[in-house]
């Protein structure tokens, strides 16, 4: 591994790595964009609930002998639309969401038990795969499906980005201007549900919050302009995915989903610390310029004090 380029070429020589990067990139961009709106609309807890619903859905499908993906999509979309419909009458509070998803996860545990019992071997790896993902285990068709679905989510989200942003920032005005706020909210929840189901296959149900919350939170720390933050969120998600996958390939002891989430959390930490560091650097610089002026002119130090503030 002396030349990094040959190292990367060697890494991409493995088909399973290519599939992982292919599917992972799509999911990361979709999660980054969805995550930005989820953070903006203060619905991160909803994403948390969806991730738990995804577990229950996949387990139920496995227990009754269906494909796990079917259960994932049906459960997340169904619950998301249900929450959205309840939200029309009175926004479901955190407590209601929490109580419902605690119970749904309890059902998931029941299904997991039924599944592991029926297979006679004490095989619990299916549960682990749903909970923590298996990006290096994707087949070419699975990777293609993940990429296509993610592209669909990204396309749909970009199409409604402008009215959705309007409806998020000022719901009352948007409604008065004729924006279909309710339909937009429902549609967005459905998109978030599809993203959650897709991300479950890559990083696992329990870790998808890292792809949704961390890049979006970091982007909002770095810029206040909505479109720039939206793209930055997608870009940071992609960077975390690539860096995580590469890291996990280099250090086999690190599972890929851990590496991806750890990089995403690291990006958020840096972004959260950056403004504070910049502020203290600016203060130090202005103090350095103010220092020789202290004795000579009062006006100068006042101006320096103003720049500090």
């Amino acid at each position: 591994m002396t030349n990094p380029l040959t190292g990367i070429a060697h890494m991409l020589g493995h088909p399973f790595i290519r599939y992982a990067f292919f599917a992972g990139s799509g999911v990361a961009v979709a999660a980054g964009l969805t995550g930005y709106f989820l953070v903006l609309r203060a619905q991160v807890f909803t994403a948390d609930a969806l991730s738990h619903v995804a577990v229950a859905g996949a387990m139920a499908a496995l227990a009754f002998g269906f494909d796990a993906r079917l259960g994932l999509f049906v459960a997340t979309t169904g619950v998301a639309l249900g929450m959205g419909l309840i939200g029309q009458r009175g926004k479901p509070d955190d407590v209601t969401i929490g109580s419902v998803f605690a119970w749904i996860l309890g059902l998931g545990v029941l299904f997991l038990t039924i599944y592991t019992r029926s297979r006679s071997t004490s095989n619990s790896t299916a549960g682990i795969t749903v909970l923590f993902g298996s990006v290096f285990g994707l087949s070419s068709s699975q990777a293609l499906l993940a990429a296509v679905v993610s592209a669909g989510v990204v396309g749909a989200l970009l199409l409604v980005a402008r009215p959705l942003l309007f409806a998020t920032v000022d719901e009352a005005v948007a409604r008065a201007r004729g924006v279909p706020v309710t339909a937009l909210g429902l549609g967005f929840l459905a998109l978030a549900a599809v993203t959650a189901a897709e991300a479950t296959q890559v990083v696992g149900a329990l870790l998808l919050l890292g792809l949704v919350a961390a890049p979006a939170g970091a982007a909002r720390r770095l810029t206040t302009r909505p479109y720039r933050a939206m793209w930055l969120s997608a870009l940071l998600g992609l960077a975390a995915m690539w860096a995580g996958l590469g890291l996990s390939y280099e250090v086999p002891a690190l599972p890929p989903s851990f590496a991806v989430v750890a990089v995403a959390a690291g990006i958020y930490l840096v972004a959260a610390a950056a403004p504070a560091v910049r502020r203290s650097a600016r203060r130090r610089r202005s103090r350095a310029t103010a220092a020789p002026a202290t004795g000579s002119l009062e006006l100068d130090s006042q101006a320096a004090a103003r720049t500090v503030m």
Partner: peptide, 10 residues
């Protein structure tokens, strides 16, 4: 909520 979500995933 973004910060808490990140802590949870990590």
């Amino acid at each position: 909520s973004a910060a808490i979500g990140t802590v949870q995933a990590l």
